[in-house]
Simulated scan of single mutants.
Amino acid sequence: MLTLQKTKKYYKWSWDVSLGGEYDAWGCSTYFMEIDSNLYAHRQIEVYENGNVLFYDKSHLADNHGMLCDKKLDDKNIEEFEISQVEFEQIWQSKTPINK
C-alpha cells in the first residue's frame, strides 16, 4: 500500500518595501512561511525592522495589520529561499507577536 506523505517546507525572504501609511515607521520586513505540499501557507511570521512581529496561522487568519497568505505559491519562484524547519520553529518559539 502506497502512503502519500504530506510534507511541509519552510521559506524566508526579505521584503525591502515598508507597509506604508500608519505602519511606515515599522520599516522593511523578513517573512518566514511554512508551506504545505499543495503550496499554501500554514503559518507565517513577519519580523519588522522596528522589532514588531506578526504571526498568522489557521487560528488567526487576519487582523488589521495583515493576513495569512491565501494564494497558492509558485515553488519555482521560492525554492531559493528555502530554510530548515528548525530555523522556522526557532523564530516561531522565540518571537512574541504583537497581534496575538
Results as ranks from 00 to 15, higher is better:
Lys58Trp: 01
Asp63Val: 04
Glu87Ser: 04
Leu39Glu: 06
Ile98Glu: 11
Trp92Lys: 13
Ser94Cys: 05
Gly20Val: 10
Asp24Leu: 08
Ser29Asp: 03
Cys69Lys: 12
Asn99Arg: 11
Lys8Cys: 12
Pro97Asp: 03
Asp70Trp: 07
Leu54Tyr: 06
Gln90Cys: 10
Ile91Thr: 13
Trp92Gln: 14
Trp26Pro: 09
Asn50Thr: 08
Trp26Tyr: 07
Tyr11Glu: 00
Tyr10Arg: 04
Asp16Thr: 13
Lys9Tyr: 08
Asn99Cys: 11
Phe32Thr: 01
Thr30Gln: 04
Glu80Val: 01
Phe55Ser: 02
Asp57Lys: 00
Phe88Leu: 03
Ser94His: 06
Asn38Asp: 14
Lys95Trp: 04
Asn50Ser: 07
Asp75His: 12
Glu46Ser: 11
Asp24Lys: 10
Ser94Met: 07
Tyr31Arg: 02
Phe32Asn: 00
Asp63Gln: 13
Ile45Glu: 09
Leu4Arg: 15
Asp36Ala: 05
Glu80Ile: 06
His60Cys: 09
Asp75Cys: 12
Tyr40Trp: 04
Lys12Pro: 08
Asn77Thr: 10
Ile98Asp: 01
Ala25Pro: 09
Thr30Tyr: 03
Leu4Ala: 11
Gln5Ser: 12
His42Lys: 13
Leu19Thr: 02
Gly21Asn: 07
Glu82Asp: 05
Ser37His: 05
Glu89Thr: 04
Ile91Arg: 14
Thr3Gln: 15
Tyr40Gly: 09
Ile45Gly: 01
Gly21Lys: 03
Val17Lys: 14
Trp26Ser: 09
Tyr40Asp: 08
Cys28Trp: 02
Thr96Asn: 11
Ser94Ala: 10
Ala25Gly: 04
